[in-house]
């Protein structure tokens, strides 16, 4: 680890761009994040399912928010991170960047599926339907197809370096869908409600509800970091 620091004690980030040096670091970060994910999820579930009050309009079914919103956030955020790693890989031709993009895709697809599934189960009692071709729902479904397309394209090309570059291009082009998902509720008349949490205005929900949701969001963050780092360690061992 000391080799990663220069004389001024600043981290030489390019030192970690090598799969060999990143491998042990990923292992230790993954372990800590896995423990953090379990603890945060337990706290989030306790606050969300026990402490948070029943909603005056929706009753108990609103508690789906504690997994639906964090999963939807993760689905979009992971795609942006994946596209970022893909762009870095294309710009600097670093193997680890492509491996990171490859490792992020399955977890991102999983969170997209969870967001769609939980949203569908929330929509039935509140909207009266499991699915509607609403701008937010349709663009989120397209995100799932983009993840699946990325994984399928990578698996379809035998040469790993060519597979990396082809799927990286798809990831970068597909990133245009993320702002469409985010702003869809503002740009179009949608059945889906607007954002409950924003950086620019006060939250429109009770403090305990917000706490539960943020704890679950942190748990999903920690889980994603752990899962992706374990997967990238597998990819390093399979390819190097």
């Amino acid at each position: 680890m000391t080799q990663a620091m220069n004389s001024n004690s600043t981290v030489r980030w390019f030192w970690f761009a090598s799969p060999q040096t990143f491998f042990p670091l990923a292992g230790s970060i993954a372990r800590w994040c896995a423990v953090g994910a379990v603890l945060l999820a337990l706290a989030g579930l306790y606050v969300g399912l026990v402490v948070a009050p029943t909603d005056a309009q929706q009753g108990e079914v609103y508690r789906i928010i504690f997994i639906h919103v964090p999963a939807a956030w993760m689905s979009m955020f992971i795609y942006l991170v994946m596209a970022g790693w893909a762009a870095i890989g294309l710009a600097f031709n670093t193997r680890l960047s492509f491996m990171m993009a490859q490792a992020l895709a399955p977890t991102g697809a999983l969170f997209t599926f969870i967001a769609l599934w939980t949203g569908s189960l929330w929509g039935r009692p509140t909207w009266g339907t499991y699915w509607v071709w609403d701008a937010r729902l349709t663009s989120e479904l397209i995100l799932l197809f983009l993840y699946l397309g990325f994984m399928a394209l990578h698996a379809a090309i035998d040469d790993p370096r060519r597979a990396d570059r082809a799927s990286a291009l798809l990831a970068i082009v597909g990133a245009v869908n993320v702002p469409i998902i985010y702003y869809s509720v503002q740009w179009w008349n949608t059945l889906h409600q607007g954002a409950s949490v924003s950086l620019t205005r006060a939250p429109s929900m009770a403090a305990t509800m917000l706490t539960g949701m943020l704890l679950m969001a942190l748990a999903f963050w920690a889980y994603s970091i752990a899962a992706v780092l374990v997967r990238v360690r597998c990819i390093i061992r399979e390819r190097e």
Partner: peptide, 18 residues
């Protein structure tokens, strides 16, 4: 269907998937 059905459907599938 009761709210419990939708809640359990959402939570169980999420944690089984993870």
């Amino acid at each position: 269907m009761s709210p419990g059905f939708f809640l359990w459907g959402a939570y169980s599938v999420t944690f089984v998937a993870l």
